[in-house]
Write a protein that binds this DNA or RNA. Structure first.
Length: 703
RNA sequence: GGCGACGUAGCUCAGUUGGUUAGAGCAAUGGCUUCAUAAGCCAUGUGUCGGCGGUUCGAAUCCGCCCGUCGCUACCA
């Protein structure tokens, strides 16, 4: 049966550049779609830039240009990066499009009609000077419960949560002014009304990987679903809600609808009908994805945005009467050499930087060789990357052509396919198993099977030694036969690898005078056709190329920090830690200066030099060390400091630190903390204690 | 602390509806070959399948507990 597949990858946010982490998803999806097309199904690969939201608005302001100019610029970068990796979208749209506005309106209307929308006031801080409401992370102030200063608008570092309106001494990080408390109506979707439906959908028909269904059941469906705040008061870069003037749809509302908008655009461009691809559900309302026709909808996303795609999105589609996704395929994050990508280590590599140093086919193959159907993180091991490309692609696959093609440049392939001991037939018989692996997104299994075939083919060449036959003119036809077998086995591999390595498929078509256009071409050998002059198809990777790429990524780090944590459309690692190794504006940009204070304000904080006289691990705590600090004489303080990941207790004993000595004591699970030590850094392993220069003694005040 | 995933050769991983001596690739070692992008072929080794206990005629595979790693979450910073 010929299937019709609508396939999407998550929409990259227009606030950051594409990097190797994103590419896991776009390549995984590209390979899958190419595979489907190659098998003769109708498939389209849709994507778009995700363009709305506060982060874009603020950044555009900072850069002194319009949001439209900003997103147009980023779009250009994204499109170029994707093309550089042979990622072939059928349509690349934007959430800031008329189609999207229209579809948002339509879906919104059905949510209204279904009685899912409720209005409720939200108390928020308003920056009069900037003329905008402040999201929690744009406000800083003092915790109303514990007096901790410099805290975000929703919760303090001591774990108290509160409304931003309760924050003491609030300051807008946008303007440095004191914001006003304003009340604004927000619109919420009562997702709980769809609870039963969602629980059913999540558990049914293989819509989700089992581990995902499991996670959602455990984390969300066990209790009532919370209302979803989908509106933002002006100003906001997005679409104004037609029946709620002055309010805009929250970016996560219009982002997934962007899939549909991209489809709509594609339909216009190619004269297709929208509802042929994204049909309305049956009249009985059973939009459960298991419709009896051959139309399928597949979303590929990262594990960070499961929540939106597996709860809100099905809920919206269901309510609007659209067909639900056939499957949401969820992948893990990328690590490099076993660790989270880090700008400081140069492992946060932009797509464009990679392309300066390395061939995109390498990454396509490497990811394919590592990707499985499950939600697992994928490790890019740089040494393995080099050996795998060289040994698999160059040593095994391409070598098959390069070691035999030139022997038959003159004669072409044998007129009749020779006896190869069943090798070609055997490899042809693998087609379905390999296809099944691709279909299941088990690319690593597909690659393993293909490489096993490559091994057999190389053994054949070795046993039949065409270079020996060549020396004996009476063996000319035998030699041609052997090379014909070898090249046909090679071509078979190129067919199987075509979804992953489209360039290799094209080159093979060139070499053997016949384009590779369909999966089934692995079923029958070429005979009696000419062979072109062999040209190198893929060069070996040198470790130095990889090293240079990493080095350049280190240098580039400061410029690449613009991404905003946790924003919509986020594919993996858009929320990677900010760079902190260079004197760029990154750290400052990540945390703008607090409002001005007077010297009196400052002297309220009594900072003192203290010596660590004892430090012990708090075994049950993940982050805490228990420090005993001496302020000189008999005065000692116990402080629990969240520096466990960064320091070992024995490293600390004896050293001087700076502590906040007049901080209100705080009862913690493990004891009373009587102050805090001063440190900087983003947290986790990257915490840096402050130390006075030598000469300072405990008890001295820091001013 | 809670939830989840994972833990198989030096490395990356495959393998579980329970069934004979546990696999692949890479790396390593020895040999062969020299057509090929210092490519290829053959041979070889290694594993208490994280640990303990249970179910079973039989467990890497099922169950329980424990340990470790990672993620989310809580507490906390």
């Amino acid at each position: 049966m010929k299937r019709q597949l609508l396939v999407t990858a998550a929409l990259p946010y227009a606030n950051g550049h594409i990097h190797l982490g994103h590419l896991v998803e776009y390549l995984q999806t590209d390979i899958w779609v190419r595979f489907q097309k190659f098998r003769g199904h109708r498939a389209i690969y849709l994507c778009a830039d995700d363009t709305h939201g506060t982060a874009i608005m603020i950044r555009a302001r900072q850069e002194g240009r319009s949001e439209e100019a900003l997103i147009a610029d980023m779009r250009e970068h994204h499109v170029r990066d994707f093309a550089g990796f042979d990622i072939e979208f059928d349509n690349y749209g934007s959430t800031n499009s008329p189609e999207n506005r229209r579809l948002c309106g339509e879906i919104w209307a059905s949510l209204r009609k279904a009685g899912l929308v409720v209005e409720r006031d939200v108390v928020q801080l308003y920056d009069v000077q900037a003329g905008t409401f402040l999201a929690d992370r744009f406000v800083k102030g003092t915790c109303p419960y514990c007096g901790l200063i410099n805290q975000y608008g929703d919760s303090c570092d001591n774990g108290h949560t509160y409304s931003p309106a309760d924050l003491k001494d609030p300051v807008s990080t946008l303007s440095g002014t004191t914001p006003e408390v304003r009340r604004a109506p927000h619109l919420f979707i009562e997702l709980e009304q769809l609870h039963a439906f969602l629980a059913d959908w999540i558990g049914a028909d293989d819509h989700l990987q089992s581990e995902v269904a499991n996670y959602l059941n455990g984390h969300f469906l066990g209790e009532p679903l919370k209302d979803w705040d989908v509106s933002r008061p002006a100003p906001y870069f997005g679409f104004e809600i037609p029946d709620a003037p002055g309010n805009f749809w929250y970016v996560w509302f219009d982002a997934p609808i962007g899939y549909m908008a991209s489809l709509a655009e594609w339909c216009v461009n190619f004269g297709e009908k929208f509802d042929q691809w994204w049909p309305k559900s049956a009249a009985d309302g059973k939009s459960d994805g298991k419709n009896n026709d051959s139309r399928e909808i597949h979303h590929f996303i990262g594990k960070d945005i499961q929540y939106f795609h597996c709860l809100f999105w099905p809920g919206m589609l269901k309510t609007a009467g659209y067909r639900l996704p056939t499957k949401v395929h969820i992948h893990g994050f990328l690590t490099v050499d076993g660790e989270k990508m880090a700008k400081s280590k140069g492992t946060f590599v932009r797509a464009a930087t990679y392309l300066k140093h390395l061939n995109p086919s390498y990454l396509r193959y490497y990811y394919a060789a590592k990707l499985g159907p499950r939600l697992e993180d994928l490790d890019l091991n740089l040494d393995e990357f080099v050996t795998k490309i060289n040994s698999d692609l160059v040593g095994k696959v391409v070598n098959l052509a390069s070691r035999t093609a030139k022997f038959v440049e003159v004669t072409g392939l044998s007129a009749k396919y020779p006896d190869d001991g069943g090798l070609f037939a055997g490899a042809a018989a693998e087609a379905e198993a390999i296809a099944a692996a691709y279909e299941a997104c088990d690319f690593n299994q597909a690659m393993r099977r293909i490489m096993a075939l490559a091994d057999r083919a190389n053994a054949y060449v070795d046993q039949n030694a065409p270079w020996q036959l060549r020396k004996d003119p009476t063996q000319a036809s035998r030699m041609q036969d052997v090379c014909s077998v070898s090249l046909n086995l090679f071509r078979q591999l190129a067919v199987y690898l075509a979804p992953v390595l489209p360039r290799l498929a094209a080159q093979t078509g060139q070499l053997l005078g016949r384009p590779i256009a369909h999966w089934d071409e692995a079923q029958s050998p070429l005979c009696g056709t000419p062979v072109a002059k062999f040209e190198h198809m893929l060069t070996r990777v040198e470790k130095t190329q990889v090293t240079e790429m990493i080095e350049e990524s280190k240098e580039q780090a400061p410029a690449a920090v613009a991404t905003t944590p946790g924003m919509p459309g986020a594919t993996p690692q858009t929320s990677a830690p900010a760079a902190e190794n260079a004197d760029s504006g990154a750290a400052l940009a990540a945390e703008p200066l607090a409002a001005q204070i007077t010297i009196d304000d400052f002297t309220k904080v009594d900072l003192r030099v203290a010596r660590v006289v004892a430090a012990e691990d708090v075994a049950e705590a993940k982050k805490l060390l228990k420090l005993t600090l001496s302020l000189g004489g008999d005065t000692q303080r116990t402080v629990f400091a969240g520096i466990k990941e960064a320091y070992k207790p024995e490293q600390l004993v004896g050293r001087l630190v700076v502590m906040v000595a007049n901080l209100a004591p705080r009862q913690m699970k493990f004891g009373l903390s009587e102050g805090m030590v001063v440190a900087t850094g983003p947290g986790g392993k990257e915490v840096y204690l402050l130390t006075p220069d030598s000469g300072a003694v405990p008890g001295q005040r820091v001013l």
